[in-house]
Amino acid sequence: MNLIMQQLPIVIRSLNAGFVQTLKLFLVTLIGAVPLGLIISFGSMSRFKPLSAFTKTVVWIVRGTPLMIQLLIIYYFPGLVLGNAIWGGGESGRFMAAAVAFIFNYACYFSEIYRGGIQSVPVGQQEAGLVLGMTRTQIFFRVTLLQMIKRIVPPMSNEIITLVKDTSLARIIALQEVIWAGQAFMKGSQGISGAIWPLFFTAVYYLVFIGILTIVLGRLEQKLEYFQ
């Protein structure tokens, strides 16, 4: 116990640094995937058949294969197969590769949620706006958007919470996120080795962060409960 108390400050500092990477990957993924998902959803709803077929196939492949494989392919494929290591070396290169893989993967999941949300708003809402002389832009922003948001908040909350935990997959390309940081103390780092508790302790970070997210997203859901 005494030993742990001695190791604690070192471990915490390390885990904090790792968690900053985790958070960065989480935020960058959200910021990229939220709009990209909207573009992909428009693609899969396009009336231009080749575009919607292509988009749906891509979404099917991305959703139908493990994110871990996508990470590995995106990180290693350019360097090993094309002979052009576009990601550069070091942590920043790994982060770029991870961000690209995560954004693309999550955008595909989000696109399906958006599509459901958009299609669940009855066409009568649009028609009611039109006969009242509203423009399509006014109808989108004043009538349909909020109804869409209300419908996508619960499934988006689930995906966002899954994303927090999925960031740990980036460890496979040695991104130094929080689990990587915890695991380092098993192999030996900063004079500590063979310690497994730091790895277990990373769970606390996830629990706290997901707890906060759950509260925030729950509030948002409640805010939208005033209408049906």
């Binding site: 009855p122 009568g124 809402q125 028609e127 009611a128 039109l130 006969v131 002389g133 509203m134 423009t135 009538v143 909020l146 109804q147 209300k150 005033y226 209408f227 049906q228």
Partner: peptide, 20 residues
């Protein structure tokens, strides 16, 4: 838009805007 304002339409299923 200008021309359709000559007409009003009341739908069978109301189509009120639920958030208002």
């Amino acid at each position: 838009r200008k021309r359709r304002l000559h007409f009003g339409l009341v739908f069978q299923s109301f189509n009120l805007f639920p958030q208002y």
